[in-house]
Amino acid sequence: MDELTQQHLQELRRGTVVLASLLTLRTPGYGYGLLESLAAAGIAVDGNTLYPLLRRLEKQGLLTSEWNTEDARPRKFYRTSAEGERLIDALLTDWHEIDAALGRLTDGGTR
């Protein structure tokens, strides 16, 4: 895949990492675990993107966090908040609308 295509794909996917993270973190999880679940689900994301993103989402109140100190090493567990759920709804609705619109554009040309 050429560089130009890759760049555009990256742009297209940027917002979906937020949505995928919020969806995954309905079950509490920590940074590296989320990185692996997202990769397994086919959403490749870099640690340099994901870790700062989690902090940002927490600051925006979309995630809540808690340090789990029961394991050998302390880990910060994130969970999607009520506000995060509202954002999920909004983003998913928009996602489906865009999908439908793109479908119309590819099938019928103009409408």
């Binding site: 920590y30 940074g31 590296y32 640690g47 902090r55 090493r73 302390p74 880990r75 910060k76």
Partner: peptide
Amino acid sequence: EAELRERIEDTVEA
């Protein structure tokens, strides 16, 4: 500090 430490240690463990 704590978050970075967790991240590095998880990466090393992986």
